[in-house]
């Protein structure tokens, strides 16, 4: 978790994002009512190495997408800091913005339905001082990199393309500005099964060619295992476990990770063991460990004291009292 030299691209320290849970208007202020906050991302410290793929797994509502949006400057942190190559983000936000991109889950919703593919892919270059010829050259190059034929797609609208082709367009739009860091929010979950592997292969190809650093958000364990170098497991706004992909897949430490793996359908797993209970409220998170109401191993200490992320084996961290000595 420490910053070893210059191979860390992005590092966060105590990153926290709160959203107002309900309107906080003038009357509330006058009445000095306490505002209610949703603790979407709560004191998260992660580090992402250059050229590596970090995967965030967790249930919906665990704060995965908010963390992704924070890292590409689409959200402003409530507290904590993001360091981009060691420099605090608040000091050079515009320089960082040129180097980060995000690709959303459903390209049919994220691409403008009225623009043609050429305009969609070209758009990120428009407010940079680039000539028209150069833009056209780069659009062709980006579309070619994602395996689309420029002459076939440039005049078409997103609705004229298949799901896989649309996701390739979204990727072309992301890579045209030469980013270094790309957040991929559920990149394959809107795709058909037979298209998923095409897109995963493409993501790996692009990474090898252009040395991108990815943060992939997914709930699909098989996709996570395939694409990841490092995995972070999020639960209720907190990182509960992190490690290299083989460490997490072979020996998940946190009870939440273990239960998550057992409850997700996969081709290896015919007998599913569903997790009990519902994810906790993020307005009023449970005291102590946030997972204790659903945890089969919970004991007294879990209900009062919040576990810290501790290194259980080299490079493999878990936030669970089963692994903290006392």
């Amino acid at each position: 978790m420490n910053e070893n030299g210059s191979d860390v691209l992005i590092r966060t320290e105590g990153l926290t994002k709160l959203f107002l849970a309900s309107k906080y208007g003038l009357l509330d202020r006058l009445a000095r009512a306490k505002p209610l906050f949703v603790r979407a991302v709560d004191n998260v410290s992660i580090s992402i190495k250059k050229g590596e793929t970090v995967v965030l797994v967790g249930e919906s509502g665990s704060g995965k997408t908010t963390l992704g949006r924070l890292l590409v400057t689409l959200e402003k942190p409530t507290s904590g800091e993001i360091y981009y190559e060691g420099i605090p983000l608040s000091k050079n936000i515009s320089a960082v913005r040129e180097k980060v991109q995000i690709v959303y889950q459903n390209p049919l919703e994220s691409l403008d339905p009225r623009l043609n593919i050429n305009s969609i892919v070209e758009e990120p270059l428009l407010n940079r001082k680039i000539t028209k010829e150069e833009r056209l050259r780069r659009v062709k190059e980006a579309l070619e990199s994602v395996g689309l034929d420029y002459s076939y797609v440039y005049f078409r609208k997103p609705k004229d393309l298949s799901g896989g082709q649309r996701q390739r367009v979204a990727l072309a739009r992301a890579i045209i500005s030469n980013p270094r860091f790309i957040v991929l929010d559920e990149p394959t979950s809107a795709l058909d099964a037979s298209i998923q592997s095409q897109v995963l292969n493409l993501l790996i190809d692009l990474k090898n060619r252009f040395n991108y650093t990815y943060l992939v958000i997914t709930h699909n364990i098989m996709v996570a295992e395939y694409i990841a170098d490092q995995i972070y497991v999020m639960y209720a706004g907190k990182i509960v476990e992190t490690g290299r992909v083989d460490q997490i897949m072979k020996k998940p430490l946190h009870p939440y990770t273990q239960l998550l793996f057992k409850s997700v359908p996969s081709l290896r797993n015919k007998r599913l063991e569903p997790m009990v209970g519902e994810p906790p409220s993020l307005i009023n998170p449970p005291p102590g460990c946030r997972f204790h109401p659903r945890c089969p191993y919970a004991f007294d200490r879990c209900r009062v004291e919040e576990p810290a992320l501790v290194e259980v084996e080299p490079g493999h961290f878990a936030a669970c009292h089963l692994y903290t000595k006392k």
């Binding site: 298949s162 037979s194 998923q196 592997s197 292969n201 996709v223 295992e225 395939y226 694409i227 990841a228």
Partner: peptide, 19 residues
């Protein structure tokens, strides 16, 4: 074509084309 293992172990099999 279902993902198995890690990308370091090799590329995934793909069905060409689309439905």
């Amino acid at each position: 074509s279902f993902p198995r293992g890690n990308y370091r172990d090799g590329k995934l099999y793909t069905l060409q084309g689309a439905p």
